[in-house]
Design a protein around this nucleic acid. Structure first.
Lengths: 125, 125
DNA sequence: ATGCTTGCTTACATTTTTGTTAGTTCCTTA
DNA sequence: TAAGGAACTAACAAAAATGTAAGCAAGCAT
């Protein structure tokens, strides 16, 4: 998240797959720990940093900041600073990010179904 | 992938989110490096280990094995061993895994669109 | 002048994921 | 009897993600 080594096998593999495959590119943008939570909490409108943090719960300032910064960079959220004191910063989803909504819905449905099917399967009696 | 510390903050956070949110559960099952490639290559039918490995390219035996094992455990692939020598092992997607197809299609479409929009945005002239 | 809140940042530590290398086993065929 | 291929596994190393703890700037209320 912070410093990636451009020439590591790891990174080269990642980039190769991303460049070949839009699904992989998409997964890369949305697939880390707190991003889904950000989408989920911002889907109904903008929210300021602390509120978002408290709603998510269990995120540290640092982690949330890191993820928000990446999402901003990636065109998924917009950051608006209001020149007040104490500082007020609001985050909102971009249009493009909103268009992920159908994906989340499908994933949610699939997840529920799959979890039900898996219940009791993994731990044999 | 191998040894996770059950009581780390990291793991607790992960599990908490997963348990609350089917989307997160889903993302957790499908979101690591080589799994998308496995889905992609198996979507038209079963395939043996080496063929799969060579089609994906750049995966090591170990990595592929690790991911396939997890996917098996998670009810996403079925592993069939044919008692021949040299060994023949075939992998195929489960029905549940096939049902992810619409998700991949949406993600692919979104990924392409988003990438186009982002082009030239990140690197200012 | 001091304390207060928000939204960060820095430096460091831990955990998790990914990769590297070198085996191993099974029988079959040469 | 030795070589060979498929499908692994073990031991180790590196990279990346996540978490912890502390601190800082701005400027308003006290």
């Amino acid at each position: 998240m912070a410093s990636i080594k451009k020439n590591s096998t790891n990174n080269i593999n990642r980039e190769t797959i991303k460049s070949r495959c839009p699904e992989a590119y998409a997964m890369d943008l949305i697939g880390t720990r707190w991003k889904l939570s950000v989408f989920y909490n911002l889907k109904n409108g903008p929210m300021r940093f602390t509120v978002l943090r408290d709603r998510i719960g269990n995120v540290t300032d640092r982690m949330l900041t890191l993820h928000l910064r990446e999402m901003e960079q990636d065109g998924l959220v917009i950051r608006t600073v209001y020149p007040e004191v104490p500082a007020r910063v609001e985050y909102q989803l971009t249009e493009s990010a909103m268009e992920l909504q159908p994906v989340w819905e499908l994933l949610r449905a699939w997840g529920s179904r799959h979890r039900n099917r898996q219940e009791g399967v993994e731990v044999a009696p």
